[in-house]
């Protein structure tokens, strides 16, 4: 008993501090580092890109294209109505604009941290886009931050379709702004430069979001023909993204 007491007098505080350190670390792991991300968001606020850059993005050309898109979508809607087409319809919702405040916390994951969270209406599974097309989807959310798993991550798999010929496949990230698309068909009709968008059967993304374009093809590849897709959204230089519900 006495020796135990002496040992405790000598090492007690170290044991307690070690316990607190490990307990704290475990807590941070369990909460996905939520507290850390919140502090990071608070500290990096003065350095975050200013709101005016959103306006910069919407230049006249984009507006013109958007108007034409609305026109075409409406026509499409009417034609579908005439045909009694009952596909799953998504009502358009307003995007949540979010600044990118951080990148991945290690070298193996392709993630970015956004400076908006549940307080601003972002939920897990929401879709993240930028001028140029799809960027990724929300992977975890805290009050004021959210983490995006980018399309370019090797673990993110996306159902995609060649917009011109409707041949489907799925796409795996390759680290930078490239991704590999594997086709479901043995002999797909696809050419260099074909635009790629999300597929209508994708579980994770809504259909028809632009993703990228084909830069090279390997149709002899076994078991399935492959193509390399260049993502059109400039992920490495982005400062703002827009987040949509799925």
């Amino acid at each position: 008993m006495f020796t135990l007491r002496r040992w405790w007098d000598r090492h007690g505080i170290q044991v307690v501090i070690t316990g607190v350190a490990l307990g704290g670390a475990w807590l941070l792991q369990q909460t996905q580092g939520a507290a850390l991300l919140e502090i990071y968001q608070l500290l990096s606020r003065p350095f975050q890109p200013s709101q005016t850059q959103i306006e910069k993005l919407t230049n006249a050309r984009v507006l013109e294209l958007q108007e034409r898109l609305v026109e075409l979508e409406n026509q499409n809607q009417k034609l579908k109505g005439l045909l009694d087409y009952s596909g799953k319809e998504k009502q358009k919702s307003k995007p949540i604009f979010a600044p990118i405040i951080g990148r991945s916390a290690d070298h193996w994951w392709q993630q970015v941290t956004l400076g908006r969270g549940t307080n601003h209406g972002i939920k897990e599974g929401y879709i993240v886009t930028a001028p140029g097309g799809l960027v990724g989807r929300i992977d975890s959310v805290t009050l004021n931050t959210s983490r995006v798993l980018l399309l370019s991550d090797t673990t993110s798999q996306t159902g995609v379709v060649i917009s011109r010929t409707r041949f489907m496949g799925f796409m795996r990230g390759q680290g930078s702004n490239r991704a590999i698309m594997q086709f479901f068909d043995k002999v797909p009709d696809v050419r260099k430069g074909d635009p790629v968008s999300t597929s209508p059967v994708s579980e994770l993304f809504s259909p028809g979001i632009p993703v990228g374009k084909i830069v090279s093809l390997n149709l002899d590849k076994s078991p399935a023909p492959e193509a390399i897709v260049e993502l059109t959204a400039p992920i490495s230089s982005l400062e703002w993204v827009s987040v949509y519900p799925k």
Binding site: A25, Q29, T31, Q32, L36, A105
Partner: peptide, 21 residues
């Protein structure tokens, strides 16, 4: 090793725990 364990757990939280850091 203790320091490695603590910081590894935190980094797991900030990225993904599979595989662990």
């Amino acid at each position: 090793a203790l320091a490695g364990l603590a910081l590894g757990l935190i980094q797991d939280g900030m990225t993904s725990p599979h595989p662990t850091h």
